[in-house]
């Protein structure tokens, strides 16, 4: 097993393409975008059902990569999160096939 870093970004759907662009430019070779259903943030409760435009829907962007790749993305993601609603967490994970990340 090999150590890699997993970046999990919960972010509003409209900003997800911006986040994915940052990950790609940092050299991460892949990511997955998952839909989020509902939650409670600093400002308000949110729920997929309440917004017919789907513009305030949230998604989760998950990406696994080497430490230098994740660090390269961090500054830009921090800047993105100063404008858009979102939460970023990073954790150590173990992967079977290190050449893929």
């Amino acid at each position: 097993m090999h150590v890699r870093y997993r970046c999990e970004l919960i972010i509003e759907r409209m900003a997800a393409p911006r986040a994915c662009r940052i990950l790609e430019e940092a050299g991460l070779t892949g990511y997955t975008v998952l839909p989020a259903i509902s939650g409670l943030g600093r400002q308000a409760r949110w729920n997929r059902d309440t917004d017919i435009s789907a513009s305030s829907d949230m998604v989760v962007v998950v990406s696994i990569g080497a430490q230098d790749q994740i660090e390269a993305a961090l500054k830009e993601i921090e800047s993105l999160l100063s404008n858009h609603i979102g939460v970023l967490s990073i954790g150590e994970v173990k992967v079977l096939r290190p050449d893929r990340f």
Binding site: M14, A15, Q43, D51, I52, S53, S55, S56, N83
Partner: peptide, 18 residues
């Protein structure tokens, strides 16, 4: 409540959708 909210999330992300 369809076209404008989506545009606002891109153009003015600091505005509160709530």
């Amino acid at each position: 409540y369809i076209a404008v909210p989506a545009a606002m999330r891109l153009a003015m992300p600091k505005a509160r959708p709530s």
